[in-house]
Design a protein around this nucleic acid. Structure first.
Lengths: 150, 150
DNA sequence: GGATTATAGTTTCATCTGAAACTAAATGCA
DNA sequence: TGCATTTAGTTTCAGATGAAACTATAATCC
């Protein structure tokens, strides 16, 4: 059909707008209540679930920029929400865990984040959710393929 | 079930990663071949389809920031890809259209963008695509609702 | 063991971004 | 008509961002 590009129906654009909308809401949640940036929250989320990871492992898992992670870790250390212990087996690496204060924030943010996700999915029945899951998976695979090969 | 938040399965996170991945690929396409930023391209896309809109109408349609649009328009005017004519009925407004050079870029980028979209959707059958369409629509509605009401 | 290469993480720098303040024109109102 | 308010669009400023250079440690090769 069309060589016409209508942004409204252009998948990359729709995803971008949707994702920005959601990020804005969710950032507001973190920022207002906990003075927490998106990157910082993501670091906390990863470390909360998997204590003892290093910064570069966080980078691998989250696909965030390593500079961003470095700075987020720095802020979290300084605000006392994260602890870092040098890995004695490899002294370049710093092993991260939540402090008590960090854990307290984590335990409060997780339910709020999950509640927000639930509101997003509210109108969508179980069948639709698993379709969504599968579709996102496929898109992610295609998108990853798009990255490298030209 | 769980009060556990695993980023890998957290919808806002997945959307953000997916959208960033796709945006990166697509930006590369615009940037390398045409020295065109994402915002600039979006402005061109809207104006290409609907010549004669003003900047603020572009803002409305794209949900982009008005500062970003203002700057993108400025760059596009200076690179000679866009023309602006002051609306004589309301001299605050500038009516935008693609120049000949702009149209040439547009006519080359549109098929490339559509091709990229096609590659994204490649593994997904027609049924899945319409599900996706519907799901994104629903999510967008929920996300919009999330914006205002606290 | 010493030189070379690779990796973890940080710093620098130039750019991008968006909120808020601002300018200019238009509209509403007395 | 003249003053106050609203709207279109730009500029300013302060902070976020990411590529590239850098530091420190580890691993590899001779």
């Amino acid at each position: 059909m069309s060589d016409v590009l209508d942004l409204e129906h252009f998948l990359p654009y729709r995803l971008s707008v949707l994702s920005n909308r959601i990020s804005a809401s969710i950032s507001r949640l973190y920022a207002e209540r906990f003075a927490l940036g998106m990157t910082e929250w993501r670091v906390m989320a990863v470390i909360g679930l998997s204590p003892g990871l290093s910064s570069s492992e966080v980078v691998e898992r989250t696909a965030m920029d390593k500079v961003a992670v470095s700075r987020a870790v720095d802020r979290l250390l300084r605000s006392g929400r994260l602890l870092r212990e040098i890995d004695q087996a490899d002294r370049r690496r710093g092993l991260l865990r939540l402090s008590e204060a960090g854990r307290a924030v984590y335990d409060e943010v997780v339910p709020a984040a999950l509640a927000l996700e639930r509101r997003l999915l509210d109108g969508i029945p179980a069948a639709g959710r698993s379709q969504l899951d599968q579709l996102l998976q496929q898109l992610d695979t295609s998108a990853a393929a798009l990255q490298e090969p030209n």
